[in-house]
Simulated scan of single mutants.
Amino acid sequence: MAELEVVKSTKKIIETAKDKEKSFWHKIKEMALEIAVIIFAVSLSIAFHSWSEARHEQHQVRVFLKGVRIDLKKDMIEMKGNIEAYKNQRNAFRYLATIPKGHLADNDSIQHFAPYFYNFTGYGGNTGRYEGFKSSGKLGFIENDDLQNSILDLYEEKIPRLTISTDFYKTQKLKFADYITDNTVDYPAGNITKVMASNPVKNRSQIYLSSVNQIISNYENCTAQMEEIVKEIDTELPRKK
């Protein structure tokens, strides 16, 4: 419609300019009126386009936030399970670190804690949706600055910090497993209880305890941030009853 008005007014301006029967000032008034119509039509068209574009952007934001809410709820379940796994690992290494000097490790305790000495727990991460939205340059579409900053802080600060700490811990646990394997003979009836009570193992266990405590703290920081983001999204996009 705006384009038609521009075309019509342009034709009228040309016709008025060529009309020899109208006075100069009459032509000026008519042409000024048509120019005003053109300006109004163009302005209206631009405003409508901007409104339509903004509406489309906010639709994309709503779709993104609904998806992130689903991702975070899944992640929180995974992370809370991981926290429990790390607490078990902490108990295992605390046991090794506190074996009295000159004593052997208790065989039943070794068997009980064995799964936690060698396995590894890491955050899988449902970050694909965030990375896609970020790479397309759409994060700036989120008009709620607090929510935008919370999402950025989670995915750009807290999760990478967690990943770094778990990767380091994984590398150290692989070294731990290699040490046990290299120094154990005639397993399981051999010297495993002596190796597990040795000073190198006790020293490593103290280091691992510090790493595990840091990892648990990083997990808890992530889940707290996730819970806060989910609350903010719920406020931003209340569910229909």
Rank of each mutant, 00 (worst) to 15 (best):
T121A: 10
R90V: 05
L147D: 01
K73S: 11
D71Y: 04
K74S: 15
G128E: 09
N107S: 13
Y95E: 04
A177G: 07
Q148S: 11
L96M: 06
E143H: 06
F93G: 01
D178I: 00
T171E: 15
Y123F: 15
K175Q: 14
Q148C: 08
K80D: 15
G102L: 04
I164K: 12
I70Q: 12
D153Y: 13
M79S: 10
T121W: 04
I164Y: 15
L154E: 01
K101Y: 14
K87E: 15
L154G: 00
F168Y: 15
E78V: 06
T127E: 10
S135P: 03
G128F: 08
A177K: 12
Y86H: 08
K170V: 10
I83S: 06
Q89K: 14
S136V: 09
Y155R: 04
N107I: 11
L96S: 01
L174H: 11
Y116Q: 10
A97M: 07
D75F: 01
N91C: 01
T121I: 13
I159A: 03
I159D: 01
E156N: 13
N91Q: 14
K170I: 09
I164V: 15
D71F: 04
T171K: 15
R69I: 02
T121Y: 09
A92Y: 00
K158A: 07
G137D: 03
Y95G: 01
L152S: 07
D178K: 14
Q111Y: 13
E78A: 09
D106C: 00
L72P: 02
A97P: 01
N88K: 14
P115M: 04
F117M: 05
F117D: 05
L72N: 03
G128H: 06
K175R: 12
K158E: 09
F168D: 11
N107P: 02
I99F: 06
R129T: 08
H112F: 14
S109Q: 14
K170R: 14
Q148M: 13
T163F: 09
Y123E: 03
